[in-house]
Design a protein around this nucleic acid. Structure first.
Lengths: 141, 141
DNA sequence: CATCATAATGCAACTAAGTTGCATCTGTCA
DNA sequence: TGACAGATGCAACTTAGTTGCATTATGATG
């Protein structure tokens, strides 16, 4: 199944001086196919299941490249492992503190947070923000 | 310097079936004395500087106890290490993606987030939330 | 289309955060 | 004050992530 979004991202990566490779495409596709942020271990597992065993070093380095080129972002939802998701529509998450399940949610946010002015006054340049809700999901209650 | 807040927390911990100990008090005091979330390694370093060398296992176990008894909370601001702060006034953070510096900020939030209703409708019980701003601090610009 | 610089990949060894089992010590309470 | 259970330290372990090095493959250029 061809994916325009992924193809476009790969072209863009090419312009940054990186190359196209089957593995790069598969790793990007894994992240794109998931409806929640996934870890390096998740990616290795997904590729292995499709018969594409892949070294963990390669995955970690690839995640670094995709991050540098702005294709994916790292999200901080638990400390034991890094999670990654496609950069795209801005959204937030609900995290179950019991089973660890993570889902996307849409939040109507103010165009400008009330605190943004005072943060800027400290000389801090805001690049991104996160808003996450922690609790117990329906399954775990 | 005696600290009422810490003494009260220790009394409360006692009621939970745990005991008072010099180390427990020092670890709690370390966290309380910092104006930003700190890591297990930070705590070990702070205690060592005061001449109170302490095993890392003890620190990790203590952090677990303090978390269970609701005295501290773990915050998710970077994946490479867990950070802890005192439970108390609800607040948020600004995180410098260049130097890693983390500071508290006060945010005027809505009493109820617009999305809270739809999250609850999914059967998810919200216990806590986080709102963090990532960017570049004045020092790093 | 052949060449070549450089990016991509894998492997093994390593680092560092955090965990576990076990022996010993100590605070609390009857 | 004696005993039980929690607190502590130590060593060994687990696991996410990193690094150095050798090999392979991509794509720009002539």
């Amino acid at each position: 199944m061809p994916n325009k979004k992924i193809d476009h991202a790969l072209e863009d990566i090419l312009k940054c001086g990186f190359r196209k490779s089957a593995l790069r495409e598969m790793i990007l596709a894994s992240i794109a196919s998931s409806d929640r942020p996934i870890s390096a271990a998740d990616i290795i597992g997904m590729l292995a299941k499709k018969g594409n065993a892949c070294n963990k070093t390669t995955v970690y380095r690839e995640l670094e490249t995709l991050k540098k080129t702005g294709k994916i972002k790292e999200v901080f939802l638990r400390n034991d492992r890094a999670l990654y998701e496609l950069v795209g529509s801005h959204h937030h998450h609900i995290v179950c503190i019991s089973c660890g399940d993570i889902r996307h949610i849409d939040v109507h946010e103010p165009a400008e947070w009330p605190c943004a002015g005072s943060i800027r006054k400290q000389g801090f340049k805001i690049i991104d923000h996160s808003l996450e809700f922690f609790g117990v999901c329906g399954q775990c209650r």
